[in-house]
Simulated scan of single mutants.
Amino acid sequence: MNAPTLTQDAKALGSKAPGPLPAGHPVLKQPKVGVLLINLGTPDGTDYKSMWRYLREFLSDPRVIEMPRVAWYPILYGMVLTTRPQKTGKNYQLIWNREKDESPLRTYTRGQSEKLAAALADLPNVVVEWGMRYGNPSTASAVDALTAQGCSRIVVLPLYPQYSATTTATANDQFFRKLMTMRDQPSIRSIPAYYDEPVYIDALAASMERHLKTLDFEPEVVLASYHGIPKAYFEKGDPYHCHCLKTTRLLRERLGWDETRLISTFQSRFGAQEWLQPYTDKTVERLAKEGVKSIAIINPGFSADCIETLEEIDGEVREIFLHAGGKNFAHIPCLNDSPEGMAVIEALVRRELFGWA
Rank of each mutant, 00 (worst) to 15 (best):
S164M: 07
K11S: 06
A117N: 07
A142P: 03
G24E: 12
N125A: 11
M182H: 13
I229D: 01
Q93A: 15
E274I: 02
D202V: 07
F321I: 00
A203C: 14
C244W: 00
D216V: 04
N136P: 12
T88G: 03
I313D: 00
T168H: 08
G271I: 15
Y194H: 10
S50P: 05
A71Q: 15
R133P: 02
P20R: 11
A272T: 10
P278S: 04
I65A: 02
E197R: 10
A165C: 13
K115L: 11
T109H: 03
A17V: 09
D258V: 04
L146D: 02
D122E: 14
G301Q: 01
L59C: 10
Q30F: 10
A148S: 12
A272N: 10
A232G: 11
V128F: 06
V199Y: 06
S207F: 06
Y48I: 10
A206V: 08
E66Q: 11
E66C: 10
F217L: 07
K236G: 09
G131C: 04
Q174I: 04
E209N: 15
V156W: 03
L76H: 04
A119L: 10
D44T: 15
L6E: 08
V64M: 09
L245F: 08
I38A: 01
E259C: 10
F321V: 00
F217Y: 14
R69D: 14
